[in-house]
Design a protein around this nucleic acid. Structure first.
Lengths: 113, 113
DNA sequence: ATACTTAATTACTAAAAGTAACTAAATATT
DNA sequence: AATATTTAGTTACTTTTAGTAATTAAGTAT
C-alpha cells in the first residue's frame, strides 16, 4: 500500500495542537501576558490541567513563565517568539470558524460528543 | 476579575482541532479522497478511533463518506467545501512547524509527554 | 492564633484512548 | 461444502488522560 509518509514536524505540531486546551491557551496569551488566575478564570479549564498544559508549553519553548515573589505570589505567563509566531495559525482557525458557522448554529453541540 | 469572554465559534473550532488526530486526518484528506484503509495505514491511529473521528468530522460537515458496495466494500472519505476551507489552518501549522523546529531536533520527545 | 490570597499539587473519579480479537458480506480457493 | 480472504468497521477490555474537590505553602493582615 502507498503508505504516504507524514512529515515529522507537522506530526509534532499536530500532537501539540491536538491536545485539549492548547489552542485556547495560546489564543488567550496572544492578547498579551496573563497571570495564572486570569487564564484559569477566562478558560473553562481546571487549575490542575492548566498548570500541566503551561508546563508543556514551556518545555516546547512556546510560553515563558515569570514569578514575582510578592505579597501573594504572582506568576505571569507570556508567549515567547516561537509562541507569537503561532498567531497565523490561531488567526486562520478564527477566520475559518467565523465564516463556517452561522451565529450560534453549530453542526454539533459544544461540550457534547 | 476581567474574565474576558471567549468567542463561541473559535471555542468550538478549538474543541474540534484540540482532539487527537483531527488535524492529521484533515491534513491527509487535503491530498484528496482516501479510503478507510489508506487513512488507517498512513496515520498512527487504530481503526476504532479513526472510525469515531471520521463520524465526528461527518457530523461537523467537514468530511463526506461514500460507500461503494463492491467486492470487498470500499468506503471513501473526502473533505466537503467546509473541510477544504480548512486548508489555510493546516498550511499555517505546517509553516510554523517547518521554521520553528530545526531538522529532527524537537523541544520535546514526540510521543512522550 | 486565625483568616486571606495566589499558584499550585494531591487524591480520587470519570471519560477517553489504545489494543486485540471479532463480525459481516461477498467472493475465491481447496 | 467448507475454509480462507478482503475491507470496514465493532466489541470487550486495559491503560492513560481529564475533571473535581480538597489541601498546601508563603506571606501578610485581622
Amino acid at each position: 500500500m502507498g503508505k504516504m509518509e507524514l512529515c515529522p514536524k507537522i506530526e509534532a505540531a499536530m500532537q501539540l495542537l491536538g491536545k485539549r486546551w492548547m489552542g485556547l491557551i495560546i489564543y488567550v496569551l496572544l492578547n498579551g501576558p496573563q497571570r495564572f488566575g486570569q487564564l484559569e478564570s477566562c478558560l473553562p479549564i481546571s487549575g490542575k490541567l492548566l498548570s500541566e498544559r503551561l508546563k508543556e508549553l514551556e518545555k516546547w519553548g512556546i510560553v515563558k513563565r515569570q514569578v514575582y515573589p510578592e505579597v501573594p505570589v504572582r506568576v505571569v505567563y507570556e508567549l515567547t517568539e516561537r509562541g507569537k509566531q503561532m498567531e497565523p495559525i490561531i488567526s486562520a482557525i478564527h477566520q475559518w470558524a467565523e465564516h463556517s458557522f452561522s451565529e450560534d448554529d453549530f453542526p454539533v453541540e459544544i461540550n457534547k460528543d
